[in-house]
Write a protein that binds this DNA or RNA. Structure first.
Length: 925
RNA sequence: GGGCGAAUAGCUCAGUUGGUUAGAGCGCCUGCCUUACACGCAGGAAGUCGGGGGUUCGAGUCCCUCUUCGCCCACCA
């Protein structure tokens, strides 16, 4: 590093040969490691800036969603690190209960085994080994995209620290009465063989069938029922009728009032059940009578409880028809042993045969599915552990309402609030083997229940000395996740320095899908256990989708492997492409079939940046460069002032787009709460500066001056401007920017851009740098004329400029050489021009550009062009003047708007006059 | 069923509290290997801002309505 010879500079950046070494250099400098003692909260001098990484599944592999998400986090962390914060990005992985267990079960299935064949202990061991072997791959992959996380703090949900946090949280909540054992109907996945939380049972619209079945009145009741022989119920799940314990009608439904208290015979099962009245029944739906199956429907469970009805379970955990608890004699041989869906068909057949099937209609409704495997969820009566959520939700709601916590894009705040307002208790026990085992023991002898957090497990019952048996279940994966913002920092050890120095964190970057699963629960846990929200900002990213806007998914084969992109175009190209496409709240649309095109923006930019550096560094050379501060302002040219002003503007735009890193105080100022985190705007401002301003104009202007002008000043300005650009760009394109920055003259040994200071605007430019704009405009006008009249690119032409004012005269005369060079023209100022054999253009200040092109000018065409320009200007002027002479506009519009319109009027008038004169002399003569 | 959001150039998106002639990237057309870059340079074409109505001196921006997409939530069997 540090050399600037041509041989170091192939025309294209070679990411493969640079990225690994660069990452190693950052690691060697320990740049990503945050120190608690430097945090202002622990006596240090720096504001902490903390991001807790959403822990990917430990066995996962990197996909585009991770690429997007972690790029955003890395950009923010690198930005704040440069800005002088003690920046901490905590990485980690999640044991992912069901997901991981499913994978290992699949491996077993390939060997013809189930987890029950190998037993709990060996299964857990095997899973642990597999995780040890393949886990953590994803964290390695994050390094490949440049993630600057603090790897010394890498956490894993099953590590001792986070595990003790889980036990501590469970026990504390239990002591507070917020964790309890509940007996009720929950969502059950017959494939995963576990209960699920409400959030894990996802709705999906489906077209189903509504079966109308007639239940005959019991023999003794027929006479008393005024001739009514049967009652019809409607159901989408006939197989559950075997578990029916009643038929319910609305208490005020005149059609059925006389039947309440009578009994019907449940077909197929041939059991007598009562007709009850319950307000739950909707008289307008179906027949107005509903079958009640308390063990297989959450609503029916409520009805059953109210009427103290039995609750027979007619299905096995795997969804096979069987006589479970309280269901003796209810499941006939006809369906026994059949899967629930096969049983449905068989029962429908049988009902039809018995003449009990009255009607079949299609019915649109939504069914719950397991979020891990997609299986239709079966409501099932069972005993589970729950967390009482209402008390926890209150502070989490308050946080958003009071502006202590903001969610971007803002519209998600309403979703968050709505969920918390209607929150229901959280089922946290899972009938799995992979996870944190519930710290509860039961004594079979005396029935005592023991809830313990201590590591040595209790051996025998304290009251009767009987043997203790630990609860078989594990906790929901999300029960460890919701503690993540503080369990990773050492909680519950209150002596943890990290906890004091880095909690609460700042920004949480994640996908909207887990707003409820994770984000809202983290806020609740933060308030309950730490007394403070875990972060002040939630940034919800969009989703990676293909060109048909279908979410990228491994199973659909429409994914993009970020590592593939890194290999082809480099990590910077990947990151730039992602960031530049990341408008707040917009999805990332990429074409998996055309990586070339999808990542062209990033690849093109990387090459361009590299070549700007290539030119600039080889021309500046390795000799010492004066710092800009040592150069007297009068030595600077218009172009120098201009590019320095543009740099300041770019810095200001980047800062504005990134926004305030944290609220000022405990609450977000409503005026600022929605600002910032506009990553695409930030990178666009930086791109525009380095490409469209520095490269397109200043570097071009500098070529001549490097050859025969004031070399030292030009070199100083080039280096200063490029240094500023690289600093602004570094968070997005860390590898290429660092690689170039290392070659800038004046670097001290070992100095790294990744640790360099984020740029600040310089002092305001003392000279009117805006004058350079007139020169740029002249260049543009001449280029336009050249293209229009097909002047050969190599051919130099004569150009005359007639300035509109003495100020314009001064500027254009000074810059004539530059304008000439940039437009391949011999430029003279203020010489009367030949009228007819020339092409004409009028600049915005009214100055006129005249290009004599003997023999090439089609006067008719030229006049047509000028006339159309004139008439367009006239139209605009007319509407402008209408506005200016409109009383209401003049009295109601704000002063600055009126003033701007007046200024516009002056400029346009000057230009209009010039144009009109030109048309008159050229065309009307 | 309830709630929310979106509709701007061929594609993906910007357009700040209503106020210049609605922008960018990719794609397209024309011409250029101008000794940093063809992954580039220069020039250019392309939008009745989804339809209709309204408020206003002024509407892509605010209101109503229709159409079409998307998202979240939901115990009507």
């Amino acid at each position: 590093m540090g050399s600037t010879s041509e041989s170091d500079f192939p025309p294209q950046f070679d990411p493969a040969s640079v990225e690994g070494a660069m990452y190693a250099a950052w690691m060697a400098a320990d740049l990503f490691h945050a120190r608690a003692d430097r945090s202002a909260r622990a006596g240090g001098a720096r504001a902490p800036f903390v991001i807790i990484m959403p822990p990917p599944n430990v066995t996962g592999v990197l996909h585009m969603g991770h690429g997007l998400n972690n790029t955003v986090q890395d950009v923010l962390i690198r930005w704040r690190r440069m800005a002088g914060d003690e920046a901490l990005w905590v990485p980690g992985t999640d044991h992912a209960g069901i997901a991981t267990q499913n994978v290992v079960e699949k491996q077993l299935a390939a060997e013809g085994l189930t987890r029950f064949d190998v037993g709990r202990e060996r299964f857990v061991l095997r899973t642990r080994e597999w995780v040890a072997r393949t886990g953590g791959t994803i964290l390695e992959q994050l390094r490949a995209i440049g993630a600057s996380a603090d790897w010394s703090r890498t956490a894993y949900t099953l590590d001792p620290g986070p595990s003790s946090a889980v036990m501590e949280a469970f026990v504390r909540l239990h002591e507070a009465g917020l964790v309890y054992r509940g007996h009720r109907v929950i969502h059950w996945c017959p494939r995963c063989l576990t209960s699920l939380s409400d959030e894990e049972a996802e709705h999906e619209e489906t077209t189903g069938t509504l079966y109308h079945i007639s239940y005959p009145l019991a023999e003794g009741d027929r006479a008393a029922a005024n001739g009514t022989r049967s009652i019809t119920v409607a159901t989408t799940r006939p197989e559950t009728m075997l578990g029916d314990v009643a038929v319910a009608v609305h208490p005020e439904d005149e059609r059925y009032r006389h039947l309440v208290g009578k009994q019907v015979v449940l077909p197929i099962a041939n059991i007598v059940i009562p007709i009850v009245a319950d307000e739950y029944t909707d008289p307008s739906f179906g027949s107005g009578a509903v079958k009640i199956t308390p063990a297989h429907d959450a609503n029916d469970f409520e009805v059953g409880s109210r009427h103290e009805l039995p609750m027979p379970v007619v299905m096995s955990p795997a969804g096979v028809m069987e006589e479970g608890s309280g269901a003796a004699g209810r499941v006939p041989g006809l369906v026994r042993g059949l899967d629930r869906f096969a049983a449905r068909e068989r029962i429908v057949e049988e009902l039809r045969a018995q003449g009990r099937l009255e009607k079949i209609e299609t019915h649109h409704h939504s069914l719950r599915h397991c979020y891990r495997c997609g299986t239709v969820v079966e409501p099932r009566l069972s005993d589970q552990w729950f967390v009482r959520m209402k008390p926890l939700a209150q502070p989490a709601l308050e946080a958003v309402r009071a502006g202590r916590l903001r969610i971007l894009p803002e519209r998600w705040e309403a979703v968050y609030v709505n969920w918390l307002e209607n929150i229901r208790d959280w089922n946290i026990s899972r009938q799995l083997w992979w996870g944190h085992r519930i710290p509860v023991w039961y004594c079979d002898g005396c029935g005592t229940m023991l809830v313990r957090r201590e590591a040595p497990q209790p051996a025998e019952c304290a009251s009767c000395g009987g043997a203790l048996r630990q609860d078989e279940d594990v906790l929901d994966t999300w029960f460890s996740s919701w503690l993540w913002p503080f369990s990773t920092l050492g909680w519950p050890r209150t002596s943890s320095r990290d906890l004091a120095a880095f909690y609460p964190s700042d920004v949480l970057v994640t996908a909207p899908e887990i707003l409820f699963f994770w984000v809202a629960r983290m806020v609740m846990a933060g308030y309950y256990f730490m007394g403070d929200a875990p972060f002040h900002t939630v940034y919800l990213t969009g989703t990676a989708r293909d060109t048909n806007h279908v979410r990228m998914q491994k199973s659909l084969g429409n994914g993009i492997d970020p590592l593939d992109v890194v290999q082809r175009y480099g990590a910077d190209a990947l990151r730039y492409t992602v960031v530049s496409a990341l408008g707040l709240g917009t999805d990332l649309i990429l074409d998996p079939a055309d990586l070339e095109r999808s990542f062209a923006p990033g690849r093109n930019f990387a090459t361009k940046l590299w070549n700007i550096g290539r030119f600039l560094l080889t021309n500046v050379g390795s000799g010492s460069v004066e710092p800009l501060s040592a150069i007297a302002p009068e030595r600077l040219t218009r172009a120098d002032h201009w590019i320095l002003a543009r740099l300041d503007a770019a810095i200001a735009e980047c800062d504005a787009a990134l926004g305030p890193p944290r609220p000022d105080g405990r609450h977000w100022d409503p005026a600022l709460a929605r600002s910032g985190l506009r990553l695409s705007e930030y990178i666009e401002a930086a791109r525009r500066f380095v490409w469209n301003e520095l490269a397109d104009w200043y570097v071009e202007a500098a070529k001549a001056r490097l050859a025969d002008g004031d070399r030292d000043v030009t070199r100083a300005v080039l280096v200063h401007a490029f240094d500023g650009a690289l600093r602004l760009l570094h968070p997005v394109v860390p590898f290429i920017s660092e690689s170039l920055w290392q070659r800038l003259p004046g670097r001290r040994e070992g100095e790294l851009l990744a640790a360099a200071q984020w740029p600040r605007p310089g002092t305001p430019r003392p000279q009117p740098h805006g004058e350079f704009e007139l020169a740029r405009e002249a260049v543009g006008a001449i280029r336009q004329i050249r293209a229009e009249y097909d002047v050969a690119p190599g051919k130099s032409i004569d150009v005359v400029v007639v300035p509109a004012s003495t100020a314009a005269h001064r500027v254009l005369a000074d810059e004539a050489a530059l304008v000439g060079r940039l437009s391949r023209a011999a430029l003279r100022v203020d010489v009367p021009a030949p009228a007819e054999t020339a092409a004409h253009a009028v600049l915005s200040d009214g100055s006129e550009v005249i290009v004599p092109l003997a023999g090439a000018i089609d006067l008719g065409k030229e006049c047509g062009k000028l006339r159309s320009e004139l008439s367009q200007l006239d139209r605009q002027l007319a509407s402008l003047r209408a506005r200016l002479s409109n009383e209401q506009f003049m009295s109601r519009a704000p002063k600055n708007v009126v003033e701007a319109e007046r200024e516009k009027d002056r400029e346009w008038s000057a230009r209009r006059e010039q144009l009109a004169n030109k048309v008159k002399s050229l065309c009307d003569g």
